[in-house]
């Protein structure tokens, strides 16, 4: 078998691509390689770009990446699109806007379908970020749709989350569900040449200021205007992200965020692994079916059953 971990560390895009496929498929073969890559992660800076469909996220990602490349930074892009709940298939169209990055050896783009995972990301997105991190990319951009409070998982992975708003798309503050405004470390008003841009800018700015009064926050999110198609405001965006990064590093918040992430991730992995093991056992000897039968016929309650199963398993 090929030593994918080693190849990734040596910079093989092919190995990185295949390892990512395994992670997406939850192929257990990935584990051993990920284990070996772990020591080489934590170096990349992770930027999340989220917002409504049609907000211009792909174009923004393209221009932002291009700007980083001019500074000599390498970039990994993870572009997430939803899978169809009916067919399980997906059309991943984000690359269209990033054509000129396609043959740049300093850029690696991976499109991912959510595969039924809620929260705006695919289940494996976090793992994919790690692969690209170990692969040596300086900055990793996660691009995904995020409109409701259910689609804010991106903040768990990103060091800086940019929320992209557009005038005329119904992106008004009133329409923002609770929680969405709070995820942003940087606000981007894209398509700022459109009517209504100044109003949206004023709304967001005043909301940010209000929040600063209500709650003590060490970081006040800047509001950046861009016209991504015309390459306007991109330098401001780069600067806004950089100053957030500086803030995180100097205040120690970056360390804190990453620790929190490691904690959540560890708990989640324990959760996943425990669940897998218990389920495998329960299904292997037909016990699950018997339990379901008993619960359906009201001979047994699911509450009792859970306690029994866990007690027995923990004893063993």
């Amino acid at each position: 078998m090929r030593d994918y971990a080693k190849e990734v560390l040596e910079g093989s895009p092919r190995a990185a691509a295949r390892l990512i496929s395994w992670l997406e498929d939850e192929d257990p073969r990935a584990l051993e390689h990920m284990e070996r890559l772990h020591a080489h992660t934590g170096r990349a800076y992770v930027v999340g770009i989220t917002g409504s469909p049609g907000a211009g996220k792909s174009t923004l990602t393209d221009k932002f990446t291009f700007a980083l490349r001019k500074q000599g930074l390498t970039v990994g892009i993870v572009a997430v699109d939803p899978s169809s709940p009916f067919t399980g298939g997906a059309v991943l169209g984000d690359r269209v806007r990033m054509s000129r990055l396609a043959v740049d050896p300093g850029v690696f783009i991976r499109s991912m379908a959510t595969r039924g995972f809620l929260g705006g990301l695919a289940k494996a997105t976090g793992e994919v970020v790690k692969v690209l991190d170990a692969f040596g990319k300086d900055v990793i951009v996660i691009e995904t749709v995020g409109v409701g409070q259910d689609e804010v998982d991106i903040i768990r992975l990103a060091d800086t989350t940019c929320l992209v708003l557009v005038p005329g798309l119904g992106d008004t503050i009133q329409s923002m569900k609770a929680g969405v405004m709070e995820i942003a470390d940087v606000f981007v008003i894209n398509k700022a040449d459109r009517p209504g841009a100044d109003q949206l800018y004023a709304e967001v700015t005043s909301r940010v200021e209000q929040d600063a009064h209500i709650r003590e926050r060490a970081w006040t999110p800047p509001v950046v205007k861009t016209v991504a198609v015309d390459d306007e405001g991109i330098d401001d965006l780069v600067e806004a992200i950089r100053s957030h990064r500086r803030f995180l590093e100097e205040s120690g918040a970056l360390e804190e965020r990453r620790r929190r992430r490691a904690r959540e991730e560890t708990l989640q992995m324990i959760h996943g692994e425990l669940f897998r093991r218990i389920r495998d056992r329960l299904t292997a000897d037909g016990e699950l079916e018997a339990l379901v039968e008993a619960i359906a016929e009201r001979r047994e309650s699911p509450y009792r059953a859970v306690q029994d199963v866990l007690a027995r398993w923990l004893r063993e």
Binding site: S58, V91, R97
Partner: peptide
Amino acid sequence: FGEYRPKEFV
């Protein structure tokens, strides 16, 4: 003027 890349809708 810059170059245009369209948004593709599939």
